[in-house]
Structure formats: C-alpha cells, structure tokens
C-alpha cells in the first residue's frame, strides 16, 4: 500500500549545512570571506588582482580559485604573491560548499584575515549554492547588457554588492550606466554598487577601502565576543 510522507525540506539542505560549517570555521578563526561571481569576461580576476595588491598591504589575504579547467587564474594570483588554492571542477559549472571545505584543508585560517573565493564564471548556477561566505559580490561590466540583472534575478538577489566594471570604456559604448544601476536596484534594492575600471584604476580605492572597513568591522565583532 502507498503512503505519503510530508518532507518540506530544502533540496540543497546538505549544501547549506556544509556552508554553515564553513562559516562557523571562518568565524572562529576571524576570517572574513568574500565570494565573487559574474559572467565570464567581466574582469573578475583582474579586479581581484588589483584589489589584492592594495589590500595585502594591511591585511593577510588569500584566495580560493574556482575554474572548470586550468589553473591559469591561480597562477595570476600567485604571481601577485598571494596564497591561493585552485579548485578545478572538470565540468561542474559552480562551486559547492563541499569543494570549499576540501580547499580549506590546504590553508591555515589562522594566517588569513581576508579570503576571496572566485567562483566559476557563470551567472546562473552558482546562485543556488551557499559556500559559507560573509559577502557575495556580483561583477557586471559595461560590455554586457544593462538588463543583466533582469535576466539573472537569482544571482543579483543573492548578492550584497554589485561592482560595475570597465567604466573606462563608457565613451566607446552606448551603455546606459544609470539604467543598469536602476535595473539592478529594482531586482535587489539593498545592493551596494561600486563603479570600477581595472585599466585606469577608477573606483578601486573606494572599493578596497569599503572592503577593508567591512572586514575589520566583522573580525572585531568576533574578537570582542570571545573576551
């Protein structure tokens, strides 16, 4: 005979549990964790390189790199003299909490203040998967359509920060910057928006300053709760 079992449980419950484990580890070691998501070609890795160069002057930074193939991005980060662990998924289109947990085995969290996780270049799949990060940053560039947020609402709603990159190209494009920001805020009114260029350096200082003070605010809370 048949019977109905009521479950009412999130499909990704296990991933969420692992993400929560990751988060607790990060918190207990006072590490502030930022994940970066975007389409391929938005300038995510370049933005990360430039940010690291500035941030590492005062903070101990590290990176977990996620790519489907190659460790080219990890090599770029290593060349900037920052500790990096590369995850190569060989086909999986997004990072999951379990993969981050595995990568953490190669890192000493006591030696890190700020950890970046660079996700696979993909605006769809990573949205569903929590990794345990404190902050999710979505990067969009002026060479993509203004309506990206409307087409990929899940990703823009799950992020807290939007970095609009490649603003140096605006004179050569018919890109409507205000419309892009408007679309983003309609999909997620709480998004904090930065405008940057990795070519001219525009906005990088403002962005890294904000990151630094946000990270310090976070780690201060952890330290004070232990006293």
């Amino acid at each position: 005979m048949g019977s109905v079992i009521t479950i009412e449980q999130k499909i990704l419950k296990k991933n969420n549990e692992l993400a929560e484990e990751n988060r607790q580890r990060f918190d207990s070691h006072g590490v502030f964790v930022i994940s970066l998501v975007s389409s391929p070609g938005s300038g995510k890795t370049s933005l990360l390189e430039q940010s690291l160069t500035i941030l590492k002057k005062n903070l101990r930074v590290a990176v977990i790199e996620g790519d489907v193939q190659t460790d080219r991005d990890a090599q770029r980060i290593a060349a900037a003299d920052v500790p990096v662990v590369q995850i190569v998924t060989n086909g999986t289109c997004h990072l999951e909490a379990r993969m981050v947990q595995d990568a953490l085995r190669e890192m000493d969290l006591d030696e890190i203040d700020l950890l970046f996780i660079e996700n696979i270049g993909n605006l769809i799949c990573p949205a569903s998967y929590e990794l345990g990060e404190h902050l999710r940053v979505v990067i969009m560039s002026t060479t993509e359509g203004e309506d990206k947020p409307l087409k990929y609402p899940a990703m823009f709603r799950r992020s807290q920060v939007l970095v609009l990159n490649k603003v140096d190209l605006l004179p050569f494009l018919s890109y409507n910057l205000e419309e892009a920001k408007d679309f983003a805020l309609r999909v997620n009114p709480a998004l904090k928006i930065f405008e940057t260029s990795c070519t001219t350096g525009h906005g990088i200082r403002e962005w890294t300053e904000w990151l630094r003070s946000t990270a310090r605010g976070r780690t201060w809370n952890v330290v004070s709760s232990l006293q």
Binding site: G2, I7, E8, Q9, K10, I11, P153, R157, R186
Partner: peptide, 21 residues
C-alpha cells in the same frame, strides 16, 4: 509603477513523497 517588492521566489524544496512496498 516599478516599485514591486518580491515576497518569495527563492523556493527549491522537496514537499512530499509517495512510497509503497
């Protein structure tokens, strides 16, 4: 007006199962 607040939308849940012997 473009002033909509989305009250839900992120669901991805197993609701129930039916099993038999």
């Amino acid at each position: 007006k473009p002033s909509l607040e989305y009250m839900n939308g992120d669901e991805l849940e197993i609701v129930s199962l039916e099993v038999d012997d």
